[in-house]
């Protein structure tokens, strides 16, 4: 997963990439939790293939999908080049990811394009969510784009058209560090 993350959002002169931002750790946490086990996913049968407009119709929970998909990706890599995905060169990794994205790899019963989208969605979440979830480490994602984070109020700034926002980003954890921990409510 580190290898995938490093290709999806690479470390470069613009700043840390998804791997450095802790996306793998983030995904581990998410997949182990309620979402990963499908607590927000309608899992009743029958599962049938639908039209593109009908959306995701597979039976895999996120955790199942990642387990299956990552295994299949490594298998596909080994059968093509005798090396696991993580051992390929970055260029070869990119090529493989592109094929996965286009649905050209056979991960049956999991369409490779569906898994690719889940990887990309998960990487974006891990890169851009609040650091309390383990990703966006050092606020790498927020710093890249200039998102101030869990900030309270822009009432004084919103109509100062075009004002440059130069404050460092703020995480929920920063706010907690300074005072008593707030109550968590779902």
């Amino acid at each position: 997963m580190d290898a995938i993350a490093s290709r999806l959002i690479p470390n470069d002169d613009l700043g840390p990439g998804a791997k450095e931002a802790g996306v793998t750790f983030f995904l581990d946490q998410q997949l182990a939790g309620g979402w990963g086990t499908g607590d927000h996913f309608y899992r009743q049968a029958p599962f049938e293939a639908g039209t593109p407009e009908q959306g995701y119709q597979l039976s895999f929970t996120p955790a199942q999908m990642f387990r299956l998909g990552l295994g299949k990706l490594d298998e596909a890599s080994r059968s093509a080049s005798k090396k696991g995905f993580a051992e390929l060169s970055p260029a070869d990794q990119d090529a493989m990811l592109k094929r996965m994205q286009a649905g050209e790899l056979d991960f049956s019963p999991l369409p490779s394009a569906v898994f690719f989208q889940a990887l990309l969605d998960g990487t974006m979440e891990g890169f851009f969510s609040d650091p309390i979830y383990g990703g966006n480490s050092g606020m790498a994602g927020w710093t890249l784009v200039g998102f101030p984070g869990a900030y309270a109020s822009y009432a004084n700034d919103i109509d100062r058209h075009g004002v440059a926002w130069t404050r460092p980003p703020v995480s929920i954890a920063d706010a907690h560090a300074h005072g008593a921990a707030g109550e968590a409510h779902p």
Binding site: Y151, A152, S153, N156, D157, R167, V170, A175, H176, H178, G179, A180, G182
Partner: peptide, 15 residues
């Protein structure tokens, strides 16, 4: 704390 930061530590230029 919403605007003044938890424990009043302050966040942002005008709060």
């Amino acid at each position: 704390a919403n605007c003044h930061g938890m424990g009043g530590t302050g966040i942002g230029p005008l709060l």
